[in-house]
């Protein structure tokens, strides 16, 4: 166990020393994806606004507070899209990085951080769009927003661990790429991204209480929408993050040298 931990930390610290590599590669990735387009990365903002607009237009409950629902969906979609992208892309991470893994001695965590930065940059455009929607919908800028910021930082902190765990899962179990992809698509309907938990419906109750993603959404959403500190959501999100980090360290320490033979 100690040797696995040391191995994992070697890999992580090695990657941190090479931070200029993963930051540069992540920026190139984003640039390449939007090269020769008129709007460039601003398409990320347009896509986000289009989704929020569509969900608000279609699902806004009749007779309810329209502005409040817009804010609810805007934060929900911002966090959900981030999680969905991180998890879906993680499963095929080592396969996509095959030529690097077979041709260089870069630490595996370099690829993890490359995807983390990529996802964070994309989320940055969604966050910008979300702030605009919140201000337009009349949400007051209060100190409680800082709790949302802490919640987002907690999610960001959990991201490298999530990526590592799902990347190893994908390397050992290639079918998981499709299983996870489908689960994340379906998961959107079982997570209170655009529907509001009313505490009565049995299916909604299970989908809310036993779905860790619901708590990831709440750490960012509740402080802004209700001005309260969501202690329970922070506790669950923090626990999930810790479990994920422990699993990630174990996988990285034990199997990082095996990945080159698996991909």
């Amino acid at each position: 166990m100690i040797s696995a931990l040391n191995n994992a930390l070697d890999d992580i610290f090695g990657a941190m020393r090479l931070r200029r590599v993963w930051i540069a590669l992540a920026h190139e990735d984003i640039g390449d994806q939007h090269r020769r387009t008129t709007l460039g990365p601003l398409w990320l903002l347009v896509n986000y606004l289009a989704f929020v607009g569509t969900f608000v237009f279609v699902f806004q409950p009749a007779g309810k507070d329209a502005a409040g629902y817009s804010a609810y969906v805007a934060i929900g979609l911002m966090v959900w899209f981030y999680l969905m992208e991180v998890i879906s892309l993680s499963v095929s991470l080592f396969k996509r990085e095959e030529s690097f893994i077979e041709g260089t001695t870069l630490p595996l965590f370099v690829y993890v951080m490359r995807l983390t930065v990529q996802s964070a940059i994309r989320a940055g455009y969604a966050i910008a769009g979300c702030i605009v929607i919140l201000l337009l919908s009349g949400s007051e800028l209060t100190m409680a927003w800082l709790w949302s910021l802490v919640g987002l930082l907690l999610i960001l902190l959990a991201t490298p661990a999530l990526i590592t765990v799902f990347a190893f899962t994908g390397a050992f179990f290639p079918d998981s790429e499709f299983i996870v992809g489908n689960l994340m698509r379906v998961g959107m309907f079982f997570t209170p991204v655009f529907w509001v938990y009313n505490g009565k419906d049995a299916i909604q109750r299970y989908a809310y209480q036993w779905n860790p993603f619901a708590y990831f959404l709440d750490v960012a959403r509740i402080p802004i929408l209700s001005g309260q500190f969501p202690g329970n959501a922070f506790a669950v999100t923090g626990t999930v993050a810790l479990v994920m980090w422990a699993t990630a360290l174990l996988l990285l320490g034990r199997y990082r040298r095996q990945i080159v033979f698996l991909i």
């Binding site: 200029r20 540069a24 190139e28 640039g31 690097f100 077979e102 041709g103």
Partner: peptide
Amino acid sequence: FNINIGFRREATGRRNIVLRGLI
């Protein structure tokens, strides 16, 4: 081992030198 490792198709040769150097 592989000529193309670290080289980005869309980036210029000059930018690729920087990326390869970083790697």
